[in-house]
Amino acid sequence: MTAAPTSGDSAASSREVPRLERGTIVRAVVIAALLVVALFGVPAVATADWVTTATSVAIYAVVALGFGILYGRVGMISLGQVALLTIGCWVGARFSYATSLPFPLLLLLAGAITCGIGTLVGLPALRLSGLYLALITLMFAGATTVVLAVTDFPNGGGGFTGRSATGALTTSTPPVRRPSWADGDVAFYRYTVVVCALLFLLALVHVSGKPGRAWAAIRESEPAALAAGVNITLFKLWAFALASFVTGVAGCLLAAQVGVPRAITFQTQDSLTLAATALIGGIYSLWGAVVAGIFQQGIPFLFQAQWGIDPNIVLVIFGAGLLQVLLTAPGGLADQLPKDLARLWRLVVSRVREQADAEKRAP
């Protein structure tokens, strides 16, 4: 006869740490390797222009991440992410000019203030959805662009209001400061990659936890989620708050990267381009946001600066890519490309095996 387990044994077993699955370990190793390549490999082989572009890719990947959280996870179409990016950029610039706060605090302030504004903008989402919500957020983006143009963003003067002596930007306008130990382009690129990686980790924690499950229930069916006890109001505003926070931090990073941001940098149509690239990349995967950042910033730079092609051609490519995604690959490139590569690999392996079998059977 076997002895019954004692209370001490049961307590010890309940304290055992669950073993990680092999797939989880592999994914963690791959992500760590890619992060190392991004931090050290890219600056080692890239020119100065490509390092600046890679910094923009990381920033806009976070902006696409915010769009993916709202649309891909909750099912709310928000076209105001570029407006929130602009607000984060403005807050970072003004606090940089008006205070001597450390740069990490500037990031948190920009994220917190943008989070509050984005949550207020998200209040109509409690009663609106689909095209109506998209129009509301798009009008918010347009209004933000108009306000910045009227106030001559970021004004360049002292204090928080920022009115310079001439009331406008001049060539002597000081740039938004960067961290003292990351003032160079390469160092700031690495700083941006680390901050963006932490923002992706923050989103992953939410998506993998209770908020992610609640968002998935809301996306599938709000009545069913309500019947299951999900607080729809809370979790919708939670999604807007998270998306706005990460976008606000990205805006502060963008202000430090550009140095002296201009209102013309942020156009209302950029919200539509961001939505298209996010859909092409894949709104149901965090990797899709990285692909969207590459399409948003890397591809136009490649066309214009490297190949001398009119960057407007990129819009045609985005349109064709968006049509292809909507028709054949709703999960975007992040979902479709690995499947296509796996099919191609299986096809190549089968052909090689068939050829080997044929050679064996040959006299």
Rank of each mutant, 00 (worst) to 15 (best):
A28N: 13
A125M: 13
A110R: 08
V195H: 00
E21F: 04
S129Y: 11
G157R: 02
Q269P: 14
S56E: 01
Y60P: 12
F95V: 03
V36S: 08
T247P: 07
S172D: 15
G259E: 15
L327K: 08
E354I: 15
A165Q: 04
G8E: 13
T273V: 14
V249T: 06
L106E: 07
I113N: 12
L120D: 02
C196K: 07
L135H: 03
L123C: 05
D152F: 15
S100M: 00
G130W: 08
E220T: 00
D9F: 07
L272V: 09
T137A: 03
T145H: 08
F245H: 03
R190L: 08
V258T: 07
P18D: 06
A143R: 15
K210G: 09
S56V: 00
L79V: 06
R73G: 13
L198W: 06
R351M: 06
V150C: 10
A224S: 04
A83W: 08
L120Q: 01
V348F: 06
W215E: 06
G92W: 10
L302E: 11
R15S: 09
D152K: 14
D9H: 06
A83P: 05
L133C: 00
G259F: 09
R213C: 01
T170Y: 04
S78C: 10
P43N: 05
G308S: 00
A197I: 14
L107E: 12
W238M: 05
F40Y: 05
A3C: 12
L85Y: 05
A134G: 12
G229H: 11
G75Y: 05
V348P: 05
K236P: 00
L327W: 10
G80L: 07
F318E: 14
P363C: 12
V325W: 07
R346S: 05
R343V: 10
Y60E: 11
R343C: 13
L138C: 10
M76Q: 15
A11V: 12
V36Q: 05
S221F: 06
T171S: 11
L286Y: 02
S14F: 15
G281I: 01
P5C: 11
V349P: 08
K210Y: 12
L84Q: 01
L123D: 03
R361K: 00
I31E: 11
V260P: 05
Q336W: 14
A289W: 07
C115W: 10
Y189E: 02
V42D: 02
T170M: 03
L85W: 04
P104G: 15
G281M: 01
L84K: 02
D185T: 14
E222N: 03
W181P: 12
R343D: 13
L169H: 09
L198D: 06
Q267V: 15
P223C: 06
W90N: 11
L135P: 02
G68H: 10
G293K: 01
A255L: 03
I87G: 07
A61W: 13
A182H: 01
L327G: 09
L272W: 11
A61P: 13
L327S: 09
I31Q: 15
S129E: 10
V36G: 10
A125F: 14
R22I: 14
G259S: 11
